[in-house]
Design a protein around this nucleic acid. Structure first.
Lengths: 209, 209
DNA sequence: ACGCCTAACTAACGCCTGTTAGGTTGATAA
DNA sequence: TTATCAACCTAACAGGCGTTAGTTAGGCGT
């Protein structure tokens, strides 16, 4: 009757991973292994509970992945908004852009499983889940568009570049770092600096500097 | 070794999709739906045959996806190499880079299912399949590294940028277009031009031009 | 002490997956 | 005509999937 007590003994009572615990683990597994190969049984096992128990906290697998996706965007969004709003008044356009790029990259590469999971699995989840994530995404994209437009209006950016396209290029390039970034080969901070350099000034050597 | 066009001798009764036909369809489905949600039965149905019949042409699902991944890299690799080698002698560094960027982007965005499937599903396939694709990937990456090194050695590129990192940034940014590119909002050619502009000169407005 | 609430458990369901073995075609070569 | 052979089909296998229903156990307020 008293089955494996080994698990329960170490914490006197129940471990109680809870909804947030399950979500944390799901985000980590999704980031590491992708959407398709992470089953509810895998999530449950990593959380130390049984698959069926997940349905106490969530109504379906889609609900879990949707929660992960939304949280992922919100983390980068807040990180970016704060980084920009914290700048002293009168900060130049170049420094503003550098701050925004750095915030996005930091949220992605420093250990936030939610935001990295979002980037990694968004293209793998069912259409309905993608659709549910679109409003949250849209809000973040609008924040970037507003920032870029402001910079373009004050004459800091080239005037012939389409804002939407620029934002897609920028965020796409930053997100792509997830596939190859290795903290052992240089910090996220250093990478962020390189990215800003390239995007702001290009890679061609110029005589005029 | 381009499009297969499903050449069949006397299409009287049997359709005979054959190995190449199955591969074409698999590449398209993988690109559209991702690795996890494309089953052998889906591939078979789209090919007009039954699931078991696939095992006449391939030993496993992994073998199919591995073939798709390899072909995908080879297509971009050849596209890029040809585009660069076809340039007239004495072509400037900027034009060379533009040609390489354009070739990569064209192979990805114009209807090659293999190369786009590679970018889309590489992060979703089993580790063993990824590993099998690494040599082919490495060859393409080496081609880029050689090109970038050459340009840096002749003083065309900034000398403080790490070539490996530059290549990762460049290819990553180009590959990311797959997630949002829409031919109705502008051709791949135009996009390629914008990308080259940004990477070569940056997005800041400069007084010296 | 009582009942309620939370958080888990067990056991099963129907479906889908990759894979296999053996059978069936229709065209071609002898 | 007969034999060969590539290309397909049929039917089933074991195992994994998301999901559900019903049950159990500990903690807390009254």
């Amino acid at each position: 009757m008293a089955q494996n007590t080994a698990i329960k003994v170490n914490e006197t009572s129940r471990s109680a991973v809870g909804r947030d615990g399950v979500l944390d683990i799901a985000a980590r597994l999704f980031r590491e292994q992708g959407y398709g190969s992470v089953s509810l049984r895998k999530i449950a096992e990593a959380a130390g509970i049984k698959a069926g128990s997940i349905y106490y906290h969530f109504g379906s697998k889609d609900e879990i992945v949707a929660a992960v996706l939304d949280a992922g965007i919100q983390v980068v969004h807040e990180s970016m908004r704060e980084a920009v709003s914290e700048l002293p008044e009168g900060t130049g356009p170049e420094a503003i852009l550098r701050a925004a790029i750095g915030a996005h990259l930091r949220a992605l590469l420093d250990v936030c499983d939610y935001s990295s999971a979002n980037v990694r699995i968004f293209g793998q989840v069912p259409q309905s889940v993608r659709d549910a994530n679109l409003p949250t995404r849209g809000a973040y994209e609008a924040e970037w568009d507003a920032l870029l437009s402001r910079l373009q209006n004050v004459g800091a950016l080239k005037s012939d570049v389409d804002i939407r396209r620029l934002r897609l290029m920028l965020i796409g390039a930053l997100n792509a770092t997830l596939e190859w970034f290795d903290p052992d080969r240089g910090s996220a901070e250093a990478l962020s600096c390189t990215y800003a350099d390239v995007f702001l000034n290009g890679i061609l050597k110029r005589q005029d500097i």
